[in-house]
Amino acid sequence: MTTVEKIRFERVTKSFAVRDANKKGVSNEYTAVQDLSFTVREGEFITLVGPSGCGKSTLLDLTGGLTTPTRGRILIDGKEIAGPGLDRGIVFQQYALFPWKTARGNIEFGLEAKGIPKREWKEKANYYLNLVGLSQFADRYPHELSGGMKQRIAIARSLAFNPDVLLMDEPYAALDAQTRESLQSELLRIWKQTKKTIIFITHSIDEAIYLGERVVVLTGGPGQVKEIVDVPLKSRDADVRSHPDFVKIRQKVWNLLHEPEYIGANI
């Protein structure tokens, strides 16, 4: 495993101006994430878990360069993020495919953005369509695809312009268990094949442990890193989930996520 540092979050704070419910026209500051620091290694698969509203999506927007931190900074390859860039590919939770473009058209959108010559589009799009197993659905519009297919197209679109870093926001939340599991192993396969750095947000503890080499556990209000849990699992077969080590880690992450209540119950 390489230990080269890829992304560094340095005391990142993000606040939003929100309307005051009581006083009209007054806006308050709401801090979504506060003093958040951790690093991601090159080629690492890191997963983020935390309660709803703890700032996971906010963190992803910041990393994608779609918003800027109020304080602190985020470095990629040692350079501070200056805005969106094709070195990072984002897979949004709600797919965000362009409905007027076919599956192929959506993939080609990224290729065009990257400035890849038009004559290479077809071949590249075919390659990634094949990678996510949707070659026969190339000419379908998003509304003609199932949720899982749309998700796979969104992943293919992000992979196609070949970003170093893949940022994924609860991409499998809306899928049934079976589709989710097959997409999980597909993603692991793609990750091993392409050696990309992946930040993967999820609500599922199982998913976080199954996919991640490390699991970042966040706490809410405002979002901070609670602990980073190592996942020293050797294999990632489907039955790893019942392995004693897996169960132990799951227990640990669960406890971390429920700690405040746990302590409260003992007083």
């Binding site: 779609l66 949004f92 965000a96 362009f98 959108f109 990224g110 953005a113």
Partner: peptide, 26 residues
């Protein structure tokens, strides 16, 4: 979300308008 998605691919404002806003408005 579509605007966000397009912006994440670092496209220019003109392209955003022409490739996303326009077709979405049809």
């Amino acid at each position: 979300l579509l605007i966000k998605s397009a912006r994440s691919m670092n496209i220019s404002s003109f392209k955003l308008f022409y490739k996303v806003i326009l077709p979405a408005s049809v």
